[in-house]
Simulated assay, not measured.
Amino acid sequence: MWIAVLTVSLILYILLNIILYASYYFTSQLSLGSFAQVLYTMQNSMSGSESTWSEAVGGFFVRQWPWLLLGILVYAGLLWLYLKQKKTGEAGNKTMKQLKTGFLGLVATLTALNGIYGYQLYNMFGIDKYNESQAKSSDLYENYYADPRTTKIEFPEKKRNLIYIICESMESTFADPSAGGGFKKSLIPELTKLAKENTDFSSDPKTLNGGLTPGNTGWTIAGITAQSMGIPLNVGNSDFNRNFEDESQFLPYVVGMGDILKEQGYSNFFMCGSEAEFAGRRNYYEQHGDYTIYDYNTAKKDKIIPQDYRVWWGMEDEKLFAYAEKELTEIAKKDEPFNFTMLTVDTHFTGGYLCPDCPDDFENQYENVIRCSDHKVTEFVK
């Protein structure tokens, strides 16, 4: 029994290390938006995120190995001392009692520490806020949502093509204060200029005062859903958004932009530099507009990249834009109108992907990645 008690203390010690590492990882290495994001990601396809998982697991052992080794050595030492004292019989009774008391104290201390740090992790995930939000109702749909099924939508006789670029983790905060941003030197001067010389949706013509992000719209697939469906990606009913199986339904009773365009005779296309299955993106685009999908895997088939090529989440934006130009040149030759949606990836948190031709204007790598994406997107638009 006492060996079992000592073993339980080792398990509690390892659990404490996991909790401490999780607190570090989710605050320093990942941009955690909400507990809903955690739930959604856990119940969806993880294709394409293998490098992230291996990085997380590997980082645990790299960061915690001294403490893990110390715990194992202490466990082995106490176990050896216990077994040695047990053999001495009566002469070792006093030491045995002290050891047993120490075992119980160790278990109690580790249990308390797990409780304290576990509660901190609980608060960091925002589980209490998530549970509270589940009990609330919203007037979003009654007062603000325009249902495409009952709303009159008119298209011109000659329909225009749409090229829709979703910029990963990009926001107006990266501009300088004069443009409504928060950086002393703008990270997105070219996108700012592009916006102001054309049509943007700021209420102030001098600044880029972008929109706020309501709950369940702040991670990639949730942002995609919010932009093209007009609703947050709520995860209360997993039957309608999870991706364990290919036939899983993605919000089947909501009409999205792709559905509307398909009904109007558009051909829909989606391109990304990672695997489209990740987070249910393939299901979303195929089920809402019958999109033709281009991703990391099709890029290998189309010989855009070598078969063994893999960087970041699959391939970087430099190759993504080259792939898009190639496909758009062919798509544009056809007579029917088209919608070509693409998702960049270099600016994905944390750190981003710094390609060889990125500038080195800032000390922080992520700032250089943002500035690089600013240029690449603008050049692609031109």
Results as ranks from 00 to 15, higher is better:
residue 116 I to W: 12
residue 128 D to H: 10
residue 242 R to H: 09
residue 217 T to A: 00
residue 261 L to A: 14
residue 257 M to Q: 13
residue 97 K to D: 00
residue 202 S to Y: 08
residue 317 D to P: 15
residue 64 Q to G: 11
residue 32 L to C: 01
residue 45 S to Q: 04
residue 111 T to N: 07
residue 175 A to T: 03
residue 73 L to Y: 07
residue 381 V to N: 02
residue 161 N to P: 02
residue 84 K to W: 15
residue 29 Q to T: 05
residue 157 E to K: 15
residue 25 Y to D: 05
residue 140 L to E: 06
residue 109 T to A: 13
residue 8 V to H: 08
residue 274 S to C: 10
residue 216 N to E: 15
residue 48 G to A: 02
residue 86 K to M: 04
residue 179 A to W: 12
residue 359 P to K: 04
residue 78 L to Q: 12
residue 181 G to I: 04
residue 223 G to L: 00
residue 373 S to W: 05
residue 302 D to N: 15
residue 289 G to H: 11
residue 40 Y to N: 09
residue 341 T to S: 07
residue 215 G to N: 15
residue 77 G to C: 10
residue 201 F to K: 08
residue 271 M to W: 06
residue 2 W to T: 07
residue 129 K to Q: 15
residue 217 T to P: 09
residue 244 F to P: 13
residue 33 G to C: 10
residue 348 H to M: 03
residue 255 V to C: 07
residue 5 V to A: 11
residue 174 F to Y: 13
residue 132 E to H: 11
residue 350 T to D: 03
residue 234 N to L: 15
residue 169 S to K: 04
residue 53 W to S: 09
residue 121 L to P: 09
residue 264 Q to A: 13
residue 156 P to N: 02
residue 251 L to E: 08
residue 382 K to P: 01
residue 203 S to Y: 14
residue 348 H to V: 07
residue 183 F to W: 09
residue 365 Q to S: 09
residue 339 N to C: 10
residue 182 G to V: 04
residue 333 K to N: 09
residue 79 L to K: 01
residue 155 F to T: 08
residue 313 W to T: 03
residue 222 A to K: 12
residue 267 S to W: 04
residue 312 W to A: 02
residue 115 G to S: 11
residue 305 I to D: 01
residue 188 I to T: 00
residue 206 K to H: 11
residue 22 A to R: 00
residue 214 P to R: 05
residue 253 Y to R: 12
residue 41 T to F: 04
residue 101 T to G: 11
residue 91 A to E: 01
residue 51 S to L: 08
residue 112 A to K: 07
residue 114 N to F: 04
residue 336 E to A: 13
residue 293 I to H: 01
residue 355 C to P: 15
residue 250 F to H: 06
residue 113 L to F: 09
residue 166 I to K: 08
residue 364 N to C: 05
residue 331 I to T: 06
residue 369 V to P: 15
residue 124 M to D: 01
residue 72 I to G: 05
residue 313 W to E: 01
residue 87 K to G: 13
residue 286 E to F: 08
residue 155 F to A: 09
residue 113 L to N: 00
residue 296 Y to Q: 06
residue 228 S to H: 06
residue 259 D to W: 03
residue 18 I to T: 10
residue 103 F to I: 02
residue 281 R to T: 03
residue 217 T to H: 05
residue 140 L to C: 02
